[in-house]
């Protein structure tokens, strides 16, 4: 049984992807720095990506699960984070008079959302809800490639497709009609480190930043994973040898 089962399992692995493929849209596959068992985030790209988020996306999209203190992962030090947090206004309270008040943000605060609630967000965007971006890179199939493809995927609609008002044509979006207008055109931001802000660079930087936001423990996960897999591989070999030693006298 074992032999046939192994053959069976292997053939499943081989034909599985072929059966699973056939999605509606072609995504641009990129060689992200965080791919692979030793992958890490590119801090400079994440900082640039954060700048793009702040200056372009943050007007509509919240990032509710990210706190300012988390930006230490991007390479900012304590005082930079403090200064950054202080640039935002946060509602707090109630105070002793029973009233909510506005104060400057502190590192422990989460990023404030552009809209007070989902309904307000819908009302401000023609009925479409701009999704929270904290987890977007994990909440879409092939997250990073999808996000990149979407950001660079705004094209003129083919002549046989009519695009209704308030909708835009996008290559990577399922159904091709998306309610989000093209966010990036190139040179939308001025990078402090002098990197050319082309649409491809900005899209890749933003994707890098969003992947970190969705999976901030990725680097630790892979680092620990390599050690654990190494340990267990040795354990597998040792246990096979030990088993054969113990079974040597069984006929």
């Amino acid at each position: 049984m074992i032999r046939y089962l192994i053959v069976f399992a292997l053939s499943l692995f081989l034909i599985g992807p072929a059966l699973a493929a056939g999605g509606a849209v072609e995504l641009t596959k990129r060689d992200w720095s965080f791919n692979g068992p030793f992958g890490t985030f590119d801090k400079a790209a994440m900082q640039r990506g954060f700048q793009v988020y702040r200056e372009v996306c943050a007007g509509c999209h919240s990032m509710k699960y990210i706190a300012f203190r988390n930006f230490a992962d991007l390479g900012y030090n304590e005082s930079e984070i403090k200064a950054l947090a202080a640039e935002y206004e946060v509602e707090d309270g109630p105070n002793d008079d029973g009233e909510m008040f506005i104060r400057a943000g502190i590192p422990a605060d989460r990023m404030p959302s552009p809209y007070p609630n989902d309904n307000a967000a819908r009302a401000g965007n023609g009925g479409a809800l701009p999704p929270d971006l904290s987890l977007i890179a994990k909440a879409r199939a092939n997250g990073p490639d999808y996000l990149y493809s979407l950001l660079v995927g705004y094209k003129d609609a083919p002549s046989d497709t009519s695009v209704p008002d308030g909708m835009y044509y996008n290559n990577a979006y399922s159904g091709n009609l998306i309610a989000m207008p093209q966010p990036l055109y190139g040179d939308d931001v001025t990078y402090a480190d002098g990197t050319t802000a082309s649409i491809e660079v900005m899209s890749a930087d933003l994707t890098q930043f969003l992947m970190w936001a969705a999976e901030p423990k990725l680097e630790a996960r892979k680092r620990i994973g390599v050690a654990v897999v190494f340990f267990l591989s040795v354990f597998v070999i040792l246990s096979i040898l030990a088993k054969r030693r113990v079974w040597a006298d069984v006929h």
Binding site: F231, F235, L238, S239, L241, A242, R245, V246, A248, D249
Partner: peptide
């Protein structure tokens, strides 16, 4: 127990404990 004094068996058990 043939494993009692065998180095490989002891090492395997030790690794299991460590893990």
């Amino acid at each position: 127990d043939p494993g009692r004094r065998d180095f490989i068996v002891i090492a395997t058990n030790a690794m299991a404990g460590l893990g």
